[in-house]
Nucleic acid binder design. Structure first.
Lengths: 229, 229
DNA sequence: AAGTAAAATTGATAAATATCAATATTTATT
DNA sequence: AATAAATATTGATATTTATCAATTTTACTT
């Protein structure tokens, strides 16, 4: 009887994911051939650097963000396993327009842009699935933009918590790999304000806080606060 | 000898644009068969309504925006002729996630989503060009997000002016179809602040203002202000 | 061209958020 | 387990921006 290591398990999941996107076995072999490990806090890609690769997150969690001159970041996406990173750089000016950092030890498959592009051009099903991802990314950015541009701090934080819970961790509990500063950069606020709003939400029994772990107790309340403005 | 009306001229430009995207004559016929006119201020699509069509702007100018509950909009894009609108709705939940309004009398070709999707699936060159548009849209949204989330009013307004001048009107002069309120909604600020910042920029000789028309006199200065934060 | 509606402007004030500084707590390291 | 480093928290204050109200200018309609 054969036993599987956690890594084998993960390999299988990755292959399943790629099959669902319409890739055949040789194509899967190509896109999974180069695998790189990143430590917590390491840069997966640096904003402004040459964009050589499209990346597939195999294991771990990443944050993607825009840096401004004063090193104030805006996180626009948290990435969970089996997501593709860098699609916005597939064509265009050859540079990453965002930075990406590992939130915990992570494994990423690197696929050269030209290789990725070739597969798209020869595989309609895959192209169509990639277009779906673009659509999703756009909608996610609309949501972020709406949250950050016309709302007040309470609503902004609620939006971030809802995003993390529903879209990213798919759980009432937001993993402690997310820091207060991450929530701040996701919400477009200062870290101190996050602390204050979280305290408010705790008092209202909308969330429970245990050290860095946040648990959503009343999602409806968060959604009302989110809408309220 | 045959004479061409302005409309013929425009038809020709549209066909050229579609040819460059890789569409053949029958495909071009299909996507240009339904044409609708919109008056200034009319809704081209309403946020939340059923997304039946992908739209191609043939003539005129549009603004696309996210509405929040309190009817405070965030404009994320100004659309110029020969642009495609609604790509983010090609797949997904079948609803428009944004509103779109005509800034002047405009003509739009409507293409049913399924029809558009079919063309993509059968035409690799076109699919590839559409993916480029998605990339561009994402990059545009990153820029907007960066501007709105970590900058102060002066920089935000400069970003909007640079965007309008370089990306949209491709001229030092920003068309008077853009109101102060539009700039406000593009910058994530109140209209009154736009007026104040424009007055500042005028005093600094960075711009000239003639009624609603804004002319950029010193693009370098605007870019310095944009970076400064 | 007159009258009306819409948009822009200005100043005063209120509200929201960032910043700063000090401290406490948590996490990581040896 | 002790120490150091990173992160979180709290309160006070400054800064920025929104809001409100009043007026002027511009655009639109007949």
């Amino acid at each position: 009887m054969k036993t599987f290591s956690p890594d084998d398990e993960n390999n299988k999941k990755l292959v399943d994911f790629l099959k669902k996107l319409g890739l055949n076995s040789p194509e899967i072999k190509i896109v999974t051939s180069t695998e790189i490990e990143f430590k917590k806090g390491e840069n997966v890609c640096k904003q402004g650097s040459f964009a050589s690769y499209i990346m597939i997150l195999k294991e771990g969690w990443l944050k993607s963000y825009i840096e401004n001159i004063h090193f104030k970041n805006t996180i626009f996406k948290i990435t969970k396993p089996f997501s593709i990173i860098g699609l916005s750089c597939l064509y265009g000016d050859n540079h990453y327009h965002f930075g990406c950092q590992a939130l915990m030890p992570s494994k990423v498959c690197l696929v050269e842009r030209a290789v990725f592009d070739n597969i798209i051009k020869g595989n309609n099903k895959f192209a169509s699935e990639i277009i779906k991802m673009y659509s999703n990314s756009l909608q996610n950015l609309y949501d972020r933009l709406n949250s950050i541009s016309n709302k007040q701090s309470l609503s902004k934080v609620c939006d971030s918590l809802i995003y993390l819970s529903e879209k990213i961790f798919e759980s009432d509990t937001i993993s402690p790999i997310i820091t207060r500063r991450d929530i701040a950069e996701l919400s477009g606020l200062a870290t101190e304000n996050i602390v204050r709003v979280l305290a408010e939400l705790k008092t209202a029994n909308a969330i429970a806080v245990d050290k860095k772990e946040i648990t959503i107790l009343d999602m409806d309340m968060l959604k009302r606060f989110s809408c309220f403005g």
